[in-house]
Amino acid sequence: MLKGRGTDQCITNRFAHRTRHTIDDGWPVLDAAEDSAPGTTCTIETARSVITRNRSPDVPFQQSINPYRGCEHGCIYCFARPNHAYIDLSPGLDFETRLTVKTNAAERLRAELARPGYRCQPIVLGTSTDPYQPVERHWRVTRSLLEVLDACRHPVSLITKGGGILRDLDLLESLAADGLVSVMVSLTSLDAGLKRALEPRAASPATRLRVIRALRERGIPTGALIAPVIPVLTDHELEALVAAAAEAGAQEAGYVLLRLPREVSPLFQHWLEEHAPGQAEHVMSLLRQAHGGRAYDACFGHRMRGAGPWADMLEQRFRHALRRHDLVRRSQVALNTRRFRPPVPETPQQSLFPD
Rank of each mutant, 00 (worst) to 15 (best):
P200G: 10
P122F: 02
E112Y: 11
L175T: 06
T103E: 14
M184H: 14
F79E: 14
R167G: 07
I165C: 01
V181K: 06
P134T: 12
Y118G: 02
V124D: 00
T207C: 04
G164V: 13
C120G: 05
R167W: 11
R201C: 07
A197E: 13
K102T: 06
A214S: 14
R196G: 08
T100M: 07
T160A: 02
D88F: 12
R140F: 04
H84I: 00
L215G: 00
D168F: 04
R143S: 14
S204H: 14
P82I: 04
L172I: 14
N104W: 07
R81Y: 12
L194S: 08
V135W: 03
L166Q: 05
R143C: 07
I123E: 03
A214H: 06
R210L: 09
R115M: 12
A106D: 11
P205S: 13
A177D: 15
D150W: 14
R196K: 12
R208M: 08
L166F: 02
Y86E: 15
L109P: 01
Y118L: 05
D170R: 11
A106W: 03
E199L: 07
E96T: 02
S182N: 15
V135G: 01
I159L: 13
D178P: 01
L89G: 04
A197T: 14
R153C: 11
I123W: 08
S174V: 13
T207Y: 05
L99V: 09
D150F: 09
I87W: 09
D130V: 04
L215W: 00
A177V: 06
L89Q: 10
A85W: 04
A111R: 10
G92P: 05
C120L: 02
H138R: 15
K195N: 14
G179P: 11
R140T: 04
Y86L: 15
A202R: 06
S189Y: 04
G193H: 12
N104Q: 08
A206K: 15
E136L: 01
T188P: 08
V124I: 10
K195A: 13
T160V: 07
L190F: 14
I87Q: 03
F95H: 10
L146P: 13
V124R: 00
L187H: 12
D191W: 03
K161W: 15
L190K: 12
D191C: 10
T207I: 11
S174Y: 08
A177W: 10
E136Y: 05
R108P: 05
I165S: 04
G193S: 13
S157W: 07
L109W: 02
D130N: 00
Y118H: 15
T129A: 10
V156H: 00
L198S: 08
D150P: 07
V135M: 08
R196N: 03
L209W: 05
L99R: 03
V124Y: 04
V183W: 03
E147P: 00
R108G: 04
A114M: 07
T188H: 05
R110H: 12
R216S: 01
H84T: 08
V183S: 03
R216F: 00
E147C: 00
R153I: 05
